[in-house]
Every structure is written in C-alpha cells, then in structure tokens.
C-alpha cells in the first residue's frame, strides 16, 4: 500500500479561550517531507499539539483526517496507533520507567495480545537503532528522559520515531538546542526513515536543519495561518533574507498570534 495522507482543512484552534490557529490548510503524504518555518509565537507548536490531540488545545472549526479517518474523533493514543507521531519540543521526563520498557509498551500497544514483540527481537532492534544514532547503549536502561541533556532528549525522540515507524510524523523543533554533531545524527535518523510509506512535517525556525534534510515543500506560518508555501528555494531565501520580505509582501506588522491584549 502506498503512503498515508494527513489532511488538515481550515483548522481553527483555541487555547484557554484564545484563538491561536485561524484556518490552517495542509496536506502531508507518504514519501513527502514538509517543513514549516516561522518566527516564534506564530502557532507552529499549537498546530502539532492539535494534531496529536493535546487536551489543552480545542479545535473549534475545521477537520483533520488521516487516510480519510476523522482524527479529531480519536483519543491521543488512538491517533498514535493510527499512524501519527509527534516529536515534541519539550519531551516529558518519567522517573522509574526505563526507556526500554516504555518503548516496548509503545510497540506492543500496536500489537494484539499474545503477539507482543519478542524480547530478543526488541533488544536487537533497539540496540541497532541506538548505535545508528550514536547513543550510549546504557541509555536503554535509564529512566525516560530523566536527567537527559537537551540533545539527548532530541536524539531519544528520533530513536522512538525509528522504533515505532509511524506513517506520518511531526517533528517540533527537533533541531533546537543541538550542536552540529547532534544535528547531523538527528538528520541522519530522519533521512533513514524517508520512504514512500513515511511522511514528515518538520517544524523549525532555522534553515540549518534543512541543509541536511531536503524538504519537498516549505511553508511559512504567521499569525496562526500558513501564509506562504513553496519548494526548498523558499527556505534558502528565508535563510539569506529573513522573514521581513514576507511580512511586507502580505502587509503583516506583528507575525505572532495570541499575544494581543
């Protein structure tokens, strides 16, 4: 079967009664890599949280579907099992739960009872992915993200991505706080995932990640909307010229959203 399709139409999202997303339209298909760029406070994380179903974010209008299925009807865990993945900007720390136990639960949640992944097979897969991501193998037995550095947390998000193999992933600022070596490793992981069966939406406000991962589509978000879309050349132009030209072109003074009194 060919890749999946995540379709976002006219999405409006409120948080604590304030409208943050004001009509987002986007389609991500298997085999495609999209980048969403934009300055801070323009609604990028809100979009990713709304897709994953964070309870604080309220969808007031519009639709999200995955291969035609209504994502908004699903609980967070159902969305994940349907094939969505969110690499979070700020991953939680969970004491007492080892990285390995957590990942095994995540994988087994997709399998029927009695058909759980064998321990051997799991360990082999985890070891090889950790080696690929140049992670210390003892990270498997450390508690989930507890005491991890910023870079280790991001690497761990990519490890989860590679272990879980979702259909569509959103990676929210997976590049922030990474030094150049870590950035290369994280990019290597994402590139490794590239296939017809995998679609990805990379959220970033730096172009530098895109030096390692060439996106098929680039979108710019401002004021809670996608205000411009293009190919990889759009990211290049943003790198050299910044965002001001877009604001001028569109007559935007303040690109942020939700801060107005």
């Amino acid at each position: 079967m060919a890749g999946s399709v995540l379709t976002i139409k006219d999405l409006h999202v409120e948080i604590e009664g304030k409208e943050i997303l004001k009509g987002v339209n986007l389609e991500v298909k298997g085999g495609e890599i999209h980048a969403i760029m934009g300055p801070n406070g323009t609604g990028k994380s809100t979009l990713s949280s709304a897709v994953m179903g964070h309870p604080k974010y309220k969808v007031t209008q519009g639709t999200i579907t995955l291969d035609g299925e209504d994502v908004l009807e699903m609980e967070v865990d159902e969305r994940a099992r349907a094939g969505l993945f969110l690499g979070m900007q700020y991953p939680s720390e969970i004491s007492g739960v080892t990285n390995a136990d957590f990942l095994r639960s995540a994988i087994n949640s997709r399998r029927e009872e009695g058909k759980e992944i064998s321990l051997m097979k799991f360990i082999r897969k985890m070891d090889s992915q950790m080696e690929f991501l140049e992670m210390d193998l003892d990270m498997a037995q450390r508690y989930l993200n507890e005491g991890f550095s910023g870079g280790e947390k991001k690497r761990n998000e990519i490890l989860q991505l590679m272990m879980i193999e979702p259909k569509i992933a959103i990676l929210d600022e997976i590049d922030s706080g990474l030094d150049i070596d870590a950035l290369k490793v994280v990019s290597k992981g994402i590139n490794e995932m590239r296939s017809e069966d995998f679609g990805c939406l990379i959220i970033t406000h730096y172009q530098r990640l895109l030096n390692y991962i060439t996106p098929d589509h680039v979108h710019v978000m401002m004021q809670g909307r996608v205000v411009k879309s293009g190919g990889p050349e759009l990211a290049q132009r943003l790198e050299t010229e910044g965002y001001d030209w877009i604001k001028q072109e569109l007559g935007i003074e303040d690109e942020t959203v939700g801060l107005e009194a």
């Binding site: 609980e75 865990d77 994940a80 969970i94 136990d101 639960s105 995540a106 949640s109």
Partner: peptide
C-alpha cells in the same frame, strides 16, 4: 499525554507512571 502520544492507552500509561 507523552506516553499516550506513543500509542500507549491511558490505563497502561497510568500504570507505567505509578510503577515508576
């Protein structure tokens, strides 16, 4: 939310957090 976003059902997520 974090655990559930990986596909783990709520009851199992709670169980993991409590055992941890």
């Amino acid at each position: 939310y974090y655990l559930m976003s990986r596909g783990i059902p709520q009851a199992e997520a709670e169980r993991l957090v409590i055992h941890g």
